[in-house]
């Protein structure tokens, strides 16, 4: 793909211009590092990966599916947001959005997700080194999925074009970019220090007693699923108005497979009652079940579920430990 070069001074101007014509969203350090709308490029914080993933901008925590009055349903109008440009999205988050697109757009045609996703441009920021000790994106099969990708070269950026819309954006601001003659090499795309997960396929480990070790610390709090950029399970709840119980809204909320109520059916039977079963279910969905259905592993190796875990349960470590005896032989 085409490559452009941009000085950091011009990059600043580029972002200011973007924020005038569209809503610019980038990682900002508030209490924790998260994606927020910005007006000034000075606010952008690029040293670490955002603590909260990008997914909440598309697959929202709370979405009104429809409003009802009696049996009459009205779907809230999909307000076409003005173009949103996301800057500073890491490779893991970009791939996570690709995986969520597969589920929500290609599989079920979810109009709520699509409305959020439609008018958005993804400008990536490449990690020169693994930004966290928990990263393991090198172990996952990530692909190039972006509109533009920014490679940080100290005093300038190299920008790789990933889509027609990215190319159009550069054409629109062509005075701020210079053509670059070299392509981005595979070495540059590699993120060093991020291949901690040594096991590709975990199907044979299902009955391994190793799953019990370490998992007994789990608090079943659901932080891992809330911070995961790919987790997409949800639930519906009806909310009625106090003044008029006949009318209200059906809302969609994020859910978490780590909570006991996740599989509770009428009659109070819970299918995955033990924490370790639920933990194992999450890991298997990430690494195994998703691949059965969509052909790729769901996990993108951002390590947020480990960093955000109050007891720091490191599933990468757990899986590696299970394979250790075999590794010694090899």
């Amino acid at each position: 793909m085409q490559v452009f070069r941009q000085d950091k001074k011009r990059w600043r101007e580029f972002l200011i211009r973007l924020s005038r014509s569209a809503e610019l969203i980038a990682p900002v350090k508030t209490d924790l590092l998260r994606f927020e709308p910005i007006t000034d490029p000075e606010q952008i914080y690029l040293e670490k990966n955002a603590y909260f993933p990008l997914k909440e901008w598309f697959f929202r925590k709370e979405e009104v599916i429809f409003q009802f009055t009696g049996n009459k349903l009205t779907v809230p109008a999909f307000t076409a947001p003005k173009q949103r440009i996301f800057f500073g999205v890491r490779k893991c988050d970009l791939n996570a959005i690709r995986h969520q697109d597969m589920v929500f757009i290609n599989d079920v045609g979810d109009p709520y997700y699509k409305a959020q996703r439609e008018h958005s441009l993804l400008l990536g920021y490449h990690c020169n080194t693994a930004p966290s000790q928990y990263c393991f994106c090198g172990s996952m099969d990530l692909v190039d999925f972006f509109d533009l990708m920014f490679y940080d070269k100290e005093d300038y950026f190299l920008i790789e074009v990933g889509s027609d819309r990215g190319e159009a954006l550069i054409a629109e601001h062509h005075d701020l970019f210079e053509q670059h003659n070299r392509l981005i090499t595979q070495d540059e795309k590699h993120i060093p220090g991020a291949d901690r997960l040594k096991v590709k396929d975990i199907a044979h480990l299902y009955d391994n007693p190793g799953w019990k070790e370490g998992v007994d610390k789990c608090l079943s709090c659901g932080a891992c699923t809330a911070l995961c950029p790919t987790c997409y399970c949800f639930e519906f709840h009806d909310e009625t108005k106090l003044a008029d119980p006949q009318s209200g809204e059906r809302k969609r909320f994020w859910s978490s497979c780590q909570l006991q109520d996740f599989t509770r059916v009428a009659g109070d039977h819970v299918f995955r009652k033990e924490r370790e079963e639920r933990f194992k279910h999450r890991i298997y969905h990430q690494l195994d079940y998703f691949r059965e259905k969509y052909g790729i592993q769901m996990c993108v190796g951002c390590g947020r579920c480990i960093e955000g875990c109050p007891t720091r349960i490191d599933f990468v470590d757990i899986i590696n430990r299970m394979e250790r005896p075999e590794k010694k032989e090899a």
Partner: peptide, 19 residues
């Protein structure tokens, strides 16, 4: 089989049995 379900479209994941 009987499971908790929300979407019935294979998205919400509540009804998943080993994938």
């Amino acid at each position: 089989a009987e499971r908790l379900m929300y979407c019935a479209l294979g998205v919400c994941c509540h009804c998943m049995i080993r994938g």
